[in-house]
Design a protein around this nucleic acid. Sequence first.
DNA 1: CAGTTTGGTCAACGGCTGTTGACTTAGACG
DNA 2: CGTCTAAGTCAACAGCCGTTGACCAAACTG
Lengths: 185, 185
Amino acid sequence: MTAATGGRRSDRTRAAILTAARERFAADGYEKATIRAIAADAGIDPAMVMRYYGNKEGLFAVAAQLDLRLPDLAALDRAAIGDTLAGHLFDRWEDDDALVAMLRAGVSNADVLDRLREIFARQVGSAVAAVCPDDPATRAGLVATQALGLALCRYVLRLPPVVGFTREQVVAWLGPTFQRYIVGN
Amino acid sequence: MTAATGGRRSDRTRAAILTAARERFAADGYEKATIRAIAADAGIDPAMVMRYYGNKEGLFAVAAQLDLRLPDLAALDRAAIGDTLAGHLFDRWEDDDALVAMLRAGVSNADVLDRLREIFARQVGSAVAAVCPDDPATRAGLVATQALGLALCRYVLRLPPVVGFTREQVVAWLGPTFQRYIVGN
DNA sequence: CAGTTTGGTCAACGGCTGTTGACTTAGACG
DNA sequence: CGTCTAAGTCAACAGCCGTTGACCAAACTG
């Protein structure tokens, strides 16, 4: 039905599995997000998950692909780097379950940890290095602590005051922190 | 043997279970830390864990008791609050697995999440409120994002630059951040 | 029309888990 | 010594998990 998309008949199923998987991994973590539950959410048989994604690890690898899409900090007004980064991360995480999924899953899965390390070393590290060649690794690490700390408290722990933060509050409070970590001292 | 401690014979076993449990929960998270593995580490039978702690949840509840032992911020020189807090948290976490255990476990266990929320609402919230009655909930939330972000990156994700931070670096970089979050703006 | 590929279902397997109850040993006490 | 109790062992249960292979149905191809 509705061949309008032009894809093969199974593409809908693949997509349904992926959507259900992202939600389950983000909500329950890697271990508790069972293939049976994901398949049930997608309205199909668990065996289909194996057919299309090989095994649970393969499904997770596809479901938890994460691109922070960081802006080019070097192209910004130097004084606006911190605020821009804070706003960007806020926007990015508000509509993508992938990071929460990786945080929840990585906490108890060594492979996911490796990928998270690589993502932050590469994406955050290079973004920071582009504007501050002085000890970029330390600065990127500092940025990671504050950025991931926000994500942890807001989306995983769901601490009430942090859940209630508006975009403006995040920019106003965390922006200066990022600014100092990246170009300060 | 060695009745020097004066405790009952079973106290050694209880303590061995607890020690093994803390390490396993911190290293593997709640789901992957199996009672069988904990019992093996402690050199006893899995059934003993049930006898002494009822069930897995009961064991975790005892193993993951967490007291941040925050200093009385009001008794400090107001300008030293941030640095003192940064140094204290660093010291506290370097020699207590409990927080890492709760972070790893809480990520996939609703009850643990409740306890983490309560701990930070009460301990961090009241410490902050003691020195800054102006919107203490928001300020405590901000402190939590930076503090837990450091713990996450250093002990769970083990991001290389963050793992390499010295106490002096943590105080120098995070101290001013805490200072601004607690008494700034 | 027949035949072959694709999409999907079903029941089952082996393995690991938390948990239980019956059994055996060691210590304390009279 | 005998007795009673606490401490510890052992084997097993039921349940859930990821994964598999045999089977069925639909749809495209000639």
